[in-house]
Amino acid sequence: MFKSKTKLLQLTVTLTACAFLLVPMILSVLAGVTANYFQGISSGFTLKWVFRVWELYADSIFLSMWLAFSCLVVTLIIGLPAAYGLARNPGWFSRILEEFISLPLAVPGLALALALLQLYGSMKGFRASWTFILVGHVLYTLPFMVRSILAVLAAMDLKTLEEGAASLGASPWQRFRDIVVPNAMPGILAGSLTVVTLSIGEFNLTWMLHTPYLKTLPVGLADSYASMRLEVASAYTLVFFVLIVPLLMAMQWASARAQRIVS
């Protein structure tokens, strides 16, 4: 008796929470394709707001994609060898370094952006270029890449595998290429999808680092929320959903896959 009542209560809470999360998303999608949201759905459906978003903000969408791609390349170049280095060189130095590069997970992006602005803000060429935003994105996403790969590397007996390859005549670089990278693949994939997803959605740092000529998708969103009519803002949000939701699902799939290897 008690059991079924508890279950009912649990179900109610779960469904309420789902509704709380889902209803605004639906509203946003509806508002983005409704001719006049103030009059309601009866005013008819239209794609004109989506086209309007494309006219106004296509640049920001492309910039975000370009940033996400660049961010992925840089985090791979820095993060993949670093994860290997951390896995192979356990000790106080690696622990401190890992803890240190994880700071951007904990410290609010606003604080990091202020720090970057104060040190590099006076370097005009750098400050005004897209690479300045890229630095912020790499700073924020790098720990995810490193940890994702590190988790997979830590779960296998990397040291013995490498000793095996070394006994067969493989140099350090050959071992890295033939053994480490292929076996770290699930972690690299999960890390890459996480980096791209986070980079496309990053706002806190980007808002502070961007210039009027370099607006990313979320910066454009904030802009449209403040200055555009509700339908345009909603349509823009809809575009963002279309971009981010498949990425999120791919990321969750890849992370679960990597997780299975780890445990």
């Binding site: 296998m156 007996d157 000793e163 095996g164 070394a166 006994s167 493989a170 140099s171 033939d178 076996n183």
Partner: peptide, 21 residues
């Protein structure tokens, strides 16, 4: 001489077979 240049064959306790191959 480092291990990769000694030309020894080694069978490891855990075998250390490369799972990616």
């Amino acid at each position: 001489l480092p291990v990769e240049r000694r030309k020894v064959g080694m069978v490891f306790q855990s075998y250390a077979l490369f799972p990616n191959m």
